[in-house]
Design a protein around this nucleic acid. Structure first.
Length: 259
DNA sequence: ATGACTGGCCCTGCCAGA
């Protein structure tokens, strides 16, 4: 089973690239973030014509997440733990697999949190605490579980082109990385790091200052695997060539193959 | 070099992103 995640940075503007990706890479499940669309404006028909079911948790103007799946899925929307949180950043689904059990997949758009020392950063930390609590409860189900998406977390110095300049950023602050490690310490693995220790592997390059051309990137899009999902891990790939498209997203897809 | 880009919305300068 192939599970991919991609921050599209506007589903409508990126629709043709998305449809090409579905044709060429053919993921069984694709998690999307920053669709920047309401549920009503989501291009559901085009995606269904491509052979996918679409579960959407949208919002006008910004945020918004979705899960596309070849097979029918059961869906829940929103991250538990704060009824007042109106950002559309979390959607979760169970997907039947070949052997008649399920894989659970979450598509997350973790808050950016910049600038630090503001309520935006407090919201990020609170959201991470809620994600840790929810992930802990999901692990008790003893299912294969993949938490995929834009984490807005640079896990370590090898995951950013210039770590010395990122010390004060919400994506790289010690408190941010501590919470990411707390999530891993529940028993998840960072799938990319299960297959390589190589530095300089990125999933995001800023639109500004020729970041792509100069390979000034960040590794902030992750697929975290529960123990039962990790046992099935076959391979990990980053679809870096998507950054060469005309009008690209600033993120590229990353995916895993599970047996 | 206090720079730089992109997308959506309030339809046009501003907010948000990372």
């Amino acid at each position: 089973m192939r599970i991919a995640t991609w921050n599209v940075n506007s589903i409508r503007l990126r629709l043709q690239q998305l449809l090409a990706y579905l044709r060429e890479v053919a993921p069984d499940v694709l998690c999307l973030q920053e669709i920047k669309s309401t549920d009503e404006a989501f291009p559901r028909l085009e995606i269904e014509d491509a052979g996918y079911n679409a579960a959407v948790h949208g919002q006008k103007g910004w945020n918004g997440v979705a899960i596309l799946s070849k097979r029918p899925i059961e869906v829940s929307r929103g991250l538990p733990g704060d009824e007042s949180d109106i950002h559309a950043r979390y959607i979760e689904a169970t997907v039947p697999n070949d052997t008649n059990n399920v894989i659970r997949v979450a598509s997350i758009y973790l808050p950016n949190g910049n600038p630090p020392n503001t309520d935006k950063y407090a919201y990020k930390l609170d959201w991470m605490d809620r994600l840790i609590a929810h992930a802990q409860s999901l692990l008790t189900l003893e299912e294969p579980l993949v938490i995929a998406g834009d984490y807005n977390v640079i896990p370590g110095p090898v995951d950013v082109y210039d770590p010395a300049n990122w010390g004060g950023d919400a994506l790289y602050l010690p408190t941010t990385r501590e919470r990411f490690r707390a999530l891993l310490n529940l028993g998840f693995i960072d799938s990319l790091r299960a297959v390589t220790d190589a530095p300089g592997i990125y999933t995001f390059w800023d639109y500004q200052a020729g970041a792509w051309q100069r390979n000034r990137g960040l590794r902030i899009d992750h697929l975290l695997l529960s123990p039962m999902a990790a046992d099935r891990l076959q391979s990990v790939a980053i679809d870096k060539k998507m950054r060469e498209n005309d009008k690209p997203s600033d993120h590229v897809p990353i995916r895993v193959d599970l047996n």
